[in-house]
Structures are given as C-alpha cells and as structure tokens.
Computed example of a mutant assay.
Amino acid sequence: MLIIALEFSTIVLKNIMRKWPMFTRFIHNAYPVFVEEGFELLSDRKEVDIFSEDVEVVRFIKRHNTILYIINFWNMLNIDFEVFTHRNNAYEKKLTEFFERLNCSHIIVLNLLITEEEMEFKNVSIFHPDQDIYSVSWIVELPTKKILVNKGDADEVLNIRQLVNKVFNIMDPSFDSEEENLRKYKDKIRRKIPLKEKSNNTALTYGIIVVNLIIWFVLELNGGSEDVNTLLLFGANEPFLVLKRDQYWRLVTSMFLHIGFSHLLYNNFALYLFGTRIERYYGKVKFILIYFTSGIIGSIASIFFSNTVSAGASGAIYGLSGALLFLAYKTRKEIDGFNTYTILVMILIGIGLGWVMPSIDNAAHLAGFLSGLFAGKLLLFPWKNRQ
C-alpha cells in the first residue's frame, strides 16, 4: 500500500508540475541544481516564495575566489523588458552603494531573462572587464531551450550555461541527447571545413631549401661537407668556440650546414613536408619566427648536451613539426593530409632514431620540437586575444 501511495503521489506531483507555468517549472528544477553547485538563495520578504506564479525575480549568489556572482532569474511572463531594465539599473545602483562592504574585487550580475516567447535585446552591450560591477544579460527561451547572448556581452559566466542545460535536461530528458548529437554534428562539419590559408605560396620554404643546397655544394667544393675543418670554417656549431670565443653567430649559421648528402636530403625533405604547411597556415612572419627560434634553441641545447661539432637545420625542422602538431590537435583537422596521429608518429620515429644512432643530435631535436610546440601555441592564440 505504501508503494502504491508513493507512486500515486509522484504521478499527482508530476501532473501538478505540468500545469505550472514554464517559469515555475524551470525554477523548481533549477533550485536544487544551483544549490548543489554552491549557490545560495538571495531573497527578501517579497521574494520568499520562489515557486509562486506571481514571482518576478529569483536571485542566487555565490562567491568564487574574490568575485561575487549574482544570478537573477527574471520571469518575463510577468514583466516586460522596460521594467526589467529599470529594476536592474536600480539594483546595480544599490550594489554600487554597498560594494565596499561586500569585501570582493568584482561583482558580476548575470540576468537570465526566462521567457516562453521569442525575445530580442533592445540594445547592444559593451563588455568592460575592468568595471567593479558588470551586468550580463542572456535570454533563455524555454520552449526552444535556447540561450541567446546579447551582442557584446560575455557568453560564459562560471559554468552557468552548463547548469541551465542541465535543468533543460531534467525538464526534458531528450534534450541532452539532442544537444550532444547537435554538438557532434557541428564538430564533424567543422572538421571538414578546410583551414584558412594565411599565405598563398610557400616561397620562403623553397628559398631555404635552395640556400641549403647551394651552401652544401660550396662545402663540397671547399674540402667536403663531412670535413670538420671545412664545417668550422663555414660556421658549424662548436661549444668551445661559442662559449669561450663568443662566436654566437654559429648558433644561426650552423642551421644552413649539412654533413653529407643523406643529411641534406633528409632535412630538406622534412623541411618541405612541415615547412610548406606551416608557411601556408601560420603565415610567413610566424613561419620565420618558429623556424629561427626553434633552430637557435636547438643549437643552444646542442652546445650543452654535446661536445662535438654539430650542424644542420634539424632543431628548426622539429620546431616546425611541433607547431604543426599543435595546429592539428587544436583544430582537429587534417592539414593537407596530415592529422595529429600521423604528425606525432613521424616525430616519434625521428626522435626514436636519435636514441639508436649516436651521430644524431637528439638534444637539438627535442629542444627544437618543444620550442616549436610552445611557439605554435603562442602564435596561434596570441595573449592579447585571450580573456
């Protein structure tokens, strides 16, 4: 009998909830979700009954680090946009008066305009992250389960978007699977869209290859590319000369020298594979920065981890491969036939050979690769564009 009574009461409760306005149903499901995330209900005597059909706004508050977050759920069925604007401005003015007493660095007010009809913002917001109190407004359309962000506003505050979607899923269990399927579909389509080229030619890569070939022929005509004295004469890297004789220019000149034809062939082929793609999708300036930064750091690593004469563009080339690996991983796209997996395999094979063959300068390879990986990340997403 007890089980039957519980099932009956559950059915009755569900039927009652179905008859509630959508805002009341939304708040009824949102309350435990937000409380579980550490939010507290902020109410005065007029707003105690948050499940009332007449309620106009329900406020939650949470302190995260030094920032105070206030989430306002506005019942747009009971008020219009002008009333919301007037009351929100008054509320912000009140917060300004009490700001110093709240002991926080910033206050972010997120207004969720809960509506059962289509709504549009009537003005454009301008994001000012340096303000003490900043107000963000989103429209939450319950029938369509969409979150609309005002142009110029922040599109994410804490993990509120995720929490609202969680509430949607509680109200309609099919929403989560639809949202996930839509995300997977968009991701699949995004992967098929080719990357935007930053350069319509790869002249720099071919230019460096030509320079490498010319210098190699010059070495062959002046004692041979495998002769130590010839290599040193033309600028090979050597710890004593760099550190004790201050010949730092060797860190750069050694990048254009190659020891033997097989070394020349392997490096230039690798330069063609990675260099053309970096130049095309990062652009010429960033290509030069990645190439020479990685090459110089590779030469420096060679000095401290090797006591022999060294030469070659391997550090720079591994830097290009590191930047390309980051680009493929971040965009999850194939870059002219290369994806994250193929690039990583090529890099691991090259580094693996370095441990087996003693003549390969693995210190330069690893230093160049890590430099290129970091440079690729930094140049793909400059700090000035981050929030």
Rank of each mutant, 00 (worst) to 15 (best):
W20L: 00
P21D: 00
T24G: 00
R25Q: 02
L41T: 05
K46R: 15
E47I: 04
V55Y: 00
E56T: 11
V58G: 04
H64N: 12
T66L: 11
M76D: 00
F81C: 06
H86M: 08
N88E: 14
E97W: 13
R101C: 13
N103F: 12
H106T: 06
L110C: 05
L113H: 01
T115G: 01
M119D: 03
F127A: 10
H128C: 06
L148F: 12
D155N: 14
K166C: 03
P173L: 02
P173S: 02
E179W: 06
E179D: 15
T202N: 14
V211K: 09
N212D: 09
I215G: 02
V218M: 08
L221V: 07
S225L: 06
S225P: 03
V242K: 09
V242Y: 13
R245V: 02
D246S: 14
L251D: 11
F256D: 04
S262I: 13
H263K: 09
Y266E: 05
I296R: 02
S302H: 05
F305N: 01
G312E: 04
K333D: 02
T340D: 03
Y341A: 15
L344T: 13
L348C: 06
W355M: 01
V356W: 03
S371I: 01
L373D: 01
L378E: 10
P382I: 10
P382V: 11
R386F: 15
